[in-house]
Amino acid sequence: MVPVATFRNIAIGQYIPGESMLHRLDPRTKIAVTLLLVVGLFFIDSYLGYGLAALYIALAVLNSGIPARFLFRGLKPVIIIILLTFALNSFLTEGEIIWQWGFLSLTKEGLYKGGLLAVRLILLIVGTSILTLTTSPLALTDGLESLLRPGRRVGIPAHELAMMMTIALRFIPTLLEETEKIMKAQMARGADFESGNLLQRAKSLLPLLVPLFVSAFRRADELAIAMEARCYRGGEGRTKLKQLAFRPADFFVLAGSGVFIVWLALVA
């Protein structure tokens, strides 16, 4: 169990506010380019291609002004996977043996392939974390709604989805505080959340869950009443305080990155 004291300091999300060009780009542009990059990286098949892609990502990082340590922090949980990918491929790919120890044989082809896959993983993780580092979850939600809007015709509830996500994001800090408060209250009454086997712990969590759920659903009820009292009736004709604006810079970034990534994927 996470100690109650540290629970408060859990950072939600990775977004780092800033004023760079990358921060100010339309979220739709950034989502589109990131998706293209994720797919594009899979088609690249050479170190030269990955070098160019790395250069492109480095340029984006420089522009965003995000300290490199935040990017490396994102890599930390996957470092084992990256190393394992590299090692497995290096030793288990058949080819020209350069070094042998027992049944393990390091091959030239394996080193090449393992390195390529490791670089691909690193670029994927760094490339996608730029999006969440420079774009707030709310902006991403707005962008997603706008991108999904054409799907309304085939039944994708773009507005409802975005509304629910916005509400969820707004509720996270409130419910976090509530959780902490209830945990402390129950601990003051002698509740023990931290010992026993799996089943005992599950049972001991009931005094936390029941009040938490009841209060959360009561809040939901109050919000629904408040929304209906203000005549909320779905997405048709709703306006926004902050309109998304697709500016010339977005056009250049989208067109430039699009052409570059497609070229990389097909040629390099």
Partner: peptide, 26 residues
Amino acid sequence: KWDTRVMVEIAVAAALALILGMLRIY
């Protein structure tokens, strides 16, 4: 038309799930 109350409950449940996902119990 979506029921506003159900919509809000869906959202709150997702938020609760996110928070409970951070509390490692075992």
